[in-house]
Amino acid sequence: MGAQHDDLHDAADPHGRALRLGIGGPVGSGKTALVAALCRSLGPSMRLGVVTNDIYTTEDAEFLRRAGVLDPERILAVQTGCCPHTAIRDDIAANLDAVETLEERFGPLDLVIVESGGDNLTATFSRGLADRQIFVLDVSGGDKVPRKGGPGVTTADLLVVNKTDLAPLVGADLTVMSRDAAAVRDGRPVLFTSLREDRSAHSVAEWVTSLVNTWKHANDHVHEHTTPTTAA
């Protein structure tokens, strides 16, 4: 069964809980591979939990469990009833329940990753669910995708362009993608990866580590000056 959520704190209230990192992006762009890579890189040094939002039942969760990158108990799957974007944006209740279940069972945690079900370019995480979010594209979708924008590309805290190893094969120009992304992202970072070649996603892991450290520091700072009233 799920957690006993007696606290009434706002979902975005950061007091004393893990950073919640959303990872979204179109089908096949490498979200699950990125989650696996982050578990590999961060698992030894951080207390992790993962929530997957699969289109079909528990496929992604099973993939992660089989990959052996994280204690299978720490991976929960949420079913989304054909609408993965609804579960991360419009009605986040089931995802919040899963995140808090992980925190209650294994907490305190440093980082909970919520992987969205593969959707389209407009799907982004509600701020009520994710504190920060990564949007994953891959080059095989064409180098025009960053220029086309969409909330995922433009507003995600980090844009990851994956499968750079395929760029020559699909005729994608990484320079164009980089330039276009920079133009629509207002200075927010973009990282290029090839998760097939770098199974630990070093650059992304580094970015996440710094995020978690900042988050912790901010929380400690907050705790020095305020009294957490409702947080359990």
């Binding site: 079913q79 009833g81 579960a87 009605d91 986040i92 209740a93 089931a94």
Partner: peptide
């Protein structure tokens, strides 16, 4: 049906 209480995922 837009009440954000998880109902959308039940058939």
């Amino acid at each position: 049906s837009r009440l954000p209480a998880g109902g959308h995922a039940h058939s």
